[in-house]
């Protein structure tokens, strides 16, 4: 089995589990399928030799963000019975809109590829930690520092919002 077949199988599994996220009625199943999707996406990163991004994707997305989602889901105590549903007409309209969006995006991206293929210059070490670290702490050091401010703001916001305020109306 060569690498291309492997990539195609991996892509198919990614699409399948992403579809299950929006199809499955139980929100907990949706979260678990999303974790699975992130693992398959990380597999795709490894195929492209982006090892740092693959590791960070698993640690940050599957490890931190999805656990946060799962915690909130457990906290809210939602069940399959009181899951809100849209009407069939809205679902049909959404599917048509999604299909049209897909067609337009593919049609728009199709022509740019001819130019792209000519200037291809492939290197196999760019996804390693050494290269990315060099770039992150020299050229992109200012955005890196600013992102810490963003995290402080998000943390303060989350604590402020999550604090139980005094009930005025009972």
């Amino acid at each position: 089995m060569n690498l291309e077949t492997f990539a195609i199988i991996m892509g198919g599994l990614t699409i399948g589990s992403a579809l299950m996220v929006i199809i499955s009625k139980n929100p907990v199943k949706s979260v678990l399928f999303l974790v699975l999707t992130f693992f398959f996406i990380s597999g795709n990163y490894i195929l492209m030799n982006a090892q740092f991004i693959a590791a960070v994707n698993i640690i940050v997305y599957a490890g931190a963000i999805m656990v946060l989602f799962l915690f909130v889901l457990m906290l809210l105590n939602l069940s399959k019975e009181n899951e809100p549903k849209n009407s069939v007409f809205v679902k049909f309209a959404a599917l048509v809109a999604g299909g049209i969006l897909f067609t337009v995006l593919i049609a728009a991206l199709k022509d740019g590829l001819v130019i792209a293929a000519a200037t291809v210059d492939q290197s196999d070490t760019i996804g390693l930690v050494e290269n990315l670290g060099q770039l992150l702490f020299t050229k992109y050091v200012l955005p890196f520092e600013i992102s810490s401010v963003l995290f402080i703001a998000a943390m303060v916001g989350a604590v402020l919002l999550g604090k139980r305020e005094k009930q005025l109306i009972d």
């Binding site: 996220v21 959404a94 999604g98 897909f102 995006l105």
Partner: peptide
């Protein structure tokens, strides 16, 4: 597109 359709449905 799956993400967009998910937001809509």
């Amino acid at each position: 597109v799956i993400g967009v359709v998910g937001v809509l449905i």
